[in-house]
Structures are given as structure tokens and as C-alpha cells.
Design a protein around this nucleic acid. Structure first.
Length: 576
DNA sequence: GTTAGGCTGG
């Protein structure tokens, strides 16, 4: 009997129970079939599968493994771990519980990865060693995934290094882990090694390395991967297409992103979202919204990420009304707004200088605001010089206690004081940070030249050309001060990851090192601003600097995010 | 019978 619905499965189960012939071979086959359907099919029912499992007198490991697998893929993977512990400790009496085998471990490790349960993952690793499963490729790959998922790429790499035979999944898992753990350069390096060692990448590998390129702004490597994709005729794959759209958009090539998108046959919500958010980040806000409408007219339902992209387009355009409208519309799609969505709205208020509204909005939000959200408002205080509000916020909300490990709020509050010339208070903040032993994480930036990625950290002088770079930067700074520009530097790939980095970039001498990196002539100018250039003030100085350097105002205007310009007037009302 | 894999972020 074929099973395609849960109702059929339950009917069959009832018949089997009635027939009373459990010794029959077909009985076993049918039972296993309906169990597998209940546990693994998308229309299955986990509770029912669990029920079947409990009724079995002598369940074999297949049943347990399948159940653990189903739980590890479910929204609540803890159940997978509980069941594994049952197996491991044989807690159920009166029943023979099978021992875990080589199939069990990959599933339970996946659950650990999902839960980011490093401790348990390590213990299970120990068990695997003890039980002698370390020679199994699947188990090893699952260990790599577990460590990567728990944010421990170091251990993932260790497992990988010690494997006797690695396959494409091993390579991909470790590469993907590096990307997820914010180490995209190592991911790209590993991809190179992989190609050198003759392992053939598949679409999963290409997707991972493209994500790494997107994070680094490594355009020429991304292009190479794109060529490889074409060679292998993998263009048609939805996931590869989406990764390409995203990579091109994040590397500043919105035209290429558009092209890939238009060529895609079946555009799903992922592809649309990648396109919409790419357009939004390139300041093509009307076009982003048109795409959103088009997507809906193709009967594709937006997901949370789509809505984030839409709301950030509204924010970048300064459309408060539209933003609120789209936030409310989420209900229609059965989506519950998350803190990011509310954050976009708050940021829209902040950018428009409506700090009261922003604060009111935060206080009446249906979910608890977090540090980052409060900081958005605090940042607004800095731009608009609202010291009174910022001090009150820090006291009321206990901002400094909210993120004990992170020093972002201290720095921001320090900046608020600095912006109003209150150097005494700023120094106090610095002192407070020192007292509490908080270390400022330096901003960093990456630049890709001829396929080679250089990473710069503020104040760092370890680069092999550091001396030349700093000398050149000084020279450039002098030039800029004299309102000149340096035609020798023709390629800039700039990445500003967060507020702190943005302000660092503009307020310290290292700022130029971060933004201009190597001094090398290269055809074509690519200016990429990945994330926040938050305050108008920052924008202004940055714009001026870059325009003078490159005399390429148009590029800048196209790329800039978070500010909207009308006739030379910025959203905050400043002229520049 | 297993393992990796696309879009979001204040």
C-alpha cells in the first residue's frame, strides 16, 4: 500500500493492530513504512511517529534513528537529544532499547548544532571516540558541522585535518562554517585548497564560497566562481542563483545581480528577497518596492527576511508611513514582526529626527527592546545633539548593564558627549570602560586586489607594506586637506561594518588605512559601502573625502545607504 | 536508512 497522507498511515496502522499478525513479514514492512512516513514526510506527524515507537516491544535502531532524525529537523531539536539519551542510558525498562550506532550520531550532532549546545556536542564527540566511530565519514562530517554550528571553527578544522578520507561534504561543511563564523577569508582560502587537492566542488560548496565572497566583497573571486558555475551548468539552480545575486549586489555590481535575477527561471521567495534587499542597499528604493509588488503579484508570499528588506528600503527612503503600513501588513502573511522589523521603524523615526516618536515607539512595542534598538535611539541623540535624552536613556534603561561584554554603548555615549564638546564626560566613559575591563574591538576592513584579499585592522601595522601604506595615507590626507585628490589610487573597496567602525573610519588617522588599503593602480573604481554610515555628519565628511579623491560623485550617490538626498539636501535637512 | 547548502539585521 502506498502512503501519501497521514490519514492513510493511521488507517493502515489500525488495520495492522487489528490483524494481530506481528510475526508476519509484510506486517513489519508496513509498520516500518508508515512509521517512516509519519516521522520524515513533510505531511507527517511526529507525535504519531513517537506514539508508534512507544508501542513497539522491540524497536530496532532504525526506528530510534529515524525518530532522532525527525526531531533534529523539527523546531524543537531537544527531543532528539532526550531520545538519544534514552538510547545511550537505556533508561526505559521492560523494553529493549537499541544501542546508538553510526547512523545515530550524525542526527544527534545536528541537533547539538541547531541548539548551539557545545558542551553536549563535545561529550558526544567523546562517546564517538570511545565507541570507535571516528573512522566513519558521515560521523566526522557531522562533527565538523556541529563544531561550526556552535561557533567553534577551530575544532571543526581539527576534526577535518584529522580525517583520513575527506569528501566534498567535509570540505563544504568546514568552508561553510568559516563563513558562518565570520571568517570568510579562511573560507575562500580553503576553497582554493580544495580545488588544488582535486576535490570537485558541488553546488553546496559554490553557494558557501559565494557567501564568503559576498561577506568580503571579493568580487573577482566571486566572478571566478560564477564562471565555474556556468561551466558546470549550475546556473539554473535556485540556491546558486540566489547566492550569485547576493554576491554581486554586495560587491556593488547591482547590474550583474539584476541580470542573474532576470535570467532565473523559477524565482522563489529567496531570490526575490536577495534582489529586493540588493536594490534597497543600492539606494534603488522605488525599484525595490516595485519588485516587492511584482513578487506578490506572482503569488509568492513574503517571509520575515523579505519584510526586513522592504522595511529597510522604506527606512532608506525615509518613508515612515509606508514602513508602518508594511509592518502592519505582515499580519496578513501570518508573519510576526521581530525586533529587526521594529528596529527599521525606529530607525526611520530617528533618521527623520523624530526622537520623541522613536522613543515612544520603542516603549510601546509588543516585544522587549534589546540593546541594539536602544542604541539606535542613542545614535540619534548623538546626531541631533540630544545629550539630555541620551543620559536619561542610559540611566533609565540601564544600557550599560544590558551588554556587559560589549562596549558599544560606552563608546556611543562617549561620542554623544564628544559631539557636544563635553570632553570631560567623554573621558569619564573611557575610564569607566577601563575600570570594567572592557576592551574596544578595533574596526577592520578588507580589500580585494587581483584576487588577493587584504585585511586591515585599525591601528594594525603588520601588513607587509604597512610602512608604505601609512606614508601614502599621510600624503593622501594632506592632499585631501588641500582639496586635491590622488589619481593613483583608482580602486577602493570599502567596508564599514558598524557604527563604531564608521566613526572610527572618519575620526582617526587609521581611517584612511582602513578605507584605502593598498596603494596600487587598478582599472575601474569600485566603491562599496557595505553597511552603516550612520550619521549625516559621517556621511558628509566621507562623501567629501571620496568625491575629492575620485571626482566620482555619481557612484557615491548610487551606493550610499541610509540617506536620501533630494536636490543636494540630505534627509536630516543638512546641506552638503 | 545518514552528513553540508541560497535571501534578513535596528
Amino acid at each position: 500500500m502506498e502512503i501519501s497522507t497521514m490519514a492513510q498511515a493511521m488507517q493502515l496502522h489500525a488495520r495492522l493492530l487489528k490483524s494481530g499478525r506481528p510475526e508476519d513479514q509484510t506486517h513489519f514492512q508496513n509498520l516500518s513504512k508508515l512509521f517512516t512516513f509519519s516521522a520524515l514526510s513533510p505531511s507527517g506527524n511526529l507525535t504519531y511517529a513517537r506514539h508508534i515507537l512507544t508501542t513497539l516491544k522491540t524497536p530496532n535502531s532504525y526506528y530510534y534513528n529515524t525518530m532522532i532524525r525527525a526531531y533534529s529537523d523539527s523546531p524543537d531539536p531537544t527531543r532528539s537529544i532526550t531520545l538519544f539519551l534514552d538510547m545511550h542510558c537505556r533508561e526505559e525498562e521492560e523494553r529493549v532499547v537499541p544501542d546508538p550506532d553510526k547512523f545515530t550520531y550524525p542526527f544527534v550532532l545536528k541537533a547539538c548544532a541547531k541548539l548551539r549546545h557545545t558542551q553536549l556536542g563535545k561529550q558526544i564527540h567523546g562517546l564517538i571516540l570511545k565507541m570507535g566511530f571516528m573512522s566513519d565519514r558521515y560521523v566526522n562530517n557531522a562533527l565538523i558541522h556541529m563544531y561550526s554550528g556552535c561557533g567553534d571553527s577551530g575544532h571543526a578544522l581539527k576534526v577535518f585535518d584529522e580525517m583520513s578520507e575527506r569528501d566534498v561534504v567535509s570540505w563544504t561543511s568546514v568552508i561553510d562554517g568559516f563563513v558562518d563564523n565570520d571568517r570568510p577569508i579562511e573560507a575562500i582560502k580553503l576553497f582554493d585548497n580544495m580545488m588544488d587537492s582535486g576535490v570537485d566542488p558541488n553546488e553546496a560548496t559554490l553557494v558557501s564560497v559565494l557567501r564568503g565572497c559576498a561577506d568580503t566583497g571579493a568580487l573577482s573571486i566571486g566572478e571566478k566562481v560564477h564562471n565555474f558555475v556556468k561551466e558546470r551548468k549550475l546556473n539554473g539552480k535556485a540556491n546558486v542563483g540566489t547566492a550569485l545575486i547576493d554576491m554581486y549586489a554586495k560587491c556593488g555590481c547591482i547590474d550583474n545581480a539584476r541580470w542573474i535575477f532576470n535570467e532565473m527561471m523559477d524565482k522563489d521567495v529567496y531570490a526575490w528577497t536577495a534582489m529586493i534587499s540588493g536594490l534597497a542597499s543600492h539606494g534603488l528604493l522605488e525599484e525595490a518596492m516595485e519588485h516587492f509588488e511584482k513578487m506578490k503579484s506572482c503569488s509568492i508570499k513574503p517571509d520575515e527576511r523579505t519584510m526586513t528588506a522592504v522595511l529597510s528600503a522604506c527606512r532608506n527612503a525615509g518613508w515612515i508611513g509606508k514602513g508602518l503600513y508594511h509592518l502592519r501588513s505582515m499580519k496578513k502573511y501570518k508573519l510576526r514582526p521581530t525586533i529587526q522589523h521594529y528596529g527599521c521603524i525606529v530607525d526611520t523615526f530617528v533618521r527623520a529626527g523624530q526622537l520623541d516618536e522613536a522613543e515612544k515607539y520603542i516603549r510601546k512595542m509588543p516585544i522587549d527592546p534589546d540593546v541594539v534598538l536602544w542604541r539606535t535611539l542613542l545614535w540619534g541623540c548623538k546626531i541631533h545633539g540630544d545629550v539630555e535624552r541620551s543620559e536619561r536613556l542610559v540611566k533609565d534603561v540601564e544600557l550599560l548593564k544590558m551588554d556587559s561584554r560589549d562596549c558599544g554603548s560606552y563608546i556611543l555615549l562617549g561620542n554623544v558627549y564628544a559631539a557636544t564638546g563635553n570632553w570631560k564626560e567623554k573621558a569619564k566613559m573611557r575610564e569607566l570602560m577601563n575600570q570594567r575591563g572592557l576592551v574596544k574591538t578595533p574596526g577592520s576592513s578588507r580589500i580585494e586586489i587581483d584576487g588577493l584579499i587584504h585585511e586591515f585592522t585599525a591601528g594594525d601595522s603588520r601588513h607587509f607594506e604597512a610602512e608604505n601604506i601609512y606614508a601614502k595615507l599621510d600624503e593622501m590626507e594632506q592632499n585631501v586637506r588641500r582639496e586635491g585628490y590622488d589619481p593613483k589610487v583608482s580602486e577602493v573597496l570599502l567596508e564599514i561594518d558598524n557604527d563604531e567602525k564608521a566613526s572610527q573610519l572618519l575620526h582617526h588617522s587609521e581611517k584612511l588605512a582602513l578605507s584605502f588599503g593598498l596603494i596600487k593602480t587598478n582599472p575601474g573604481t569600485v566603491i562599496r559601502i557595505v553597511k552603516n554610515l550612520r550619521s549625516c555628519e559621517d556621511c558628509h565628511s566621507f562623501m567629501k573625502l571620496i568625491s575629492k579623491l575620485y571626482q566620482r560623485e555619481i557612484i557615491i550617490r548610487d551606493r550610499i545607504r541610509y540617506h536620501y538626498f533630494k536636490g543636494g539636501e540630505c534627509s536630516c535637512g543638512d546641506r552638503w
